[in-house]
Write a protein that binds this DNA or RNA. Structure first.
Lengths: 114, 114
DNA sequence: CTGTATCCTCCGAGATACTG
DNA sequence: CAGTATCTCGGAGGATACAG
């Protein structure tokens, strides 16, 4: 691995940490159009349960991908929003999409759309 | 999720499948400079054991990332090499590296190099 | 509404020994 | 050399009920 300085490995590790697991990608995806409340996320992400949603949101917050804002209303509401780093993930996803589409075309022609 | 057609989700899924897990990224990284034999991979990837190496290589081959070539020599040797799709992952990794480095600069300044 | 607390299951992955 | 066969364990993730 000639051209592979240590900070590259760390950087890829950060990126992987940020969106691996079963749900993080869906949560980030759901937040790209804009902030959402806990219950909206729960409704918009099929099959997730509150325990997992809560846990993943805490992970994402700890990793600086999502920020959490409590509105002091009655009843209380909590909004989640991507941080600048979170929004910046789009370019990374775009290049994953590019690769994925080319890969499908290359090795499973005819299955472009599922 | 307005701008999120189904084939995008599939494409990202393909990309994730291709390199998640504990070892796939290291294997791909080890193969970027060129083809390598089983035992070379085993030696070059610290702490991997033959069972995991074998399993991950089979996964990668099934996903069209790696191709396996048996040389009919004595003793037998087997070479693994990235497919064109495999080599094409570099751009994706580069954009992950970009994001990771910016992310580190943004949310953990001073820890650029670990 | 926004989460926690428990309990449980399944599988990724390590250790070690063995085979053609 | 290039793998496979077992055994084992921890942790990711699901189901459900409960709490502030």
């Amino acid at each position: 691995m000639k051209t592979c300085p240590k900070q590259y490995v760390l950087a890829v590790g950060d990126a992987l940490n940020a969106f691996t697991g079963k749900w993080k990608l869906f949560i980030i995806g759901a937040l790209i159009p804009g902030k959402q409340r806990f219950s909206e996320l729960e409704k918009n992400i099929p099959k997730i349960n509150p325990r997992m949603l809560s846990k993943e949101l805490r992970d994402l917050e700890a990793n600086g991908i999502v920020k959490r804002k409590v509105n002091d209303s009655v009843p209380v509401s909590v909004e989640y929003e991507l941080t600048p780093s979170g929004y910046a993930m789009r370019e990374m996803f775009d290049s994953m999409i590019d690769w994925g589409i080319k890969h499908r075309a290359w090795c499973m022609p005819g299955k472009i759309a599922g």
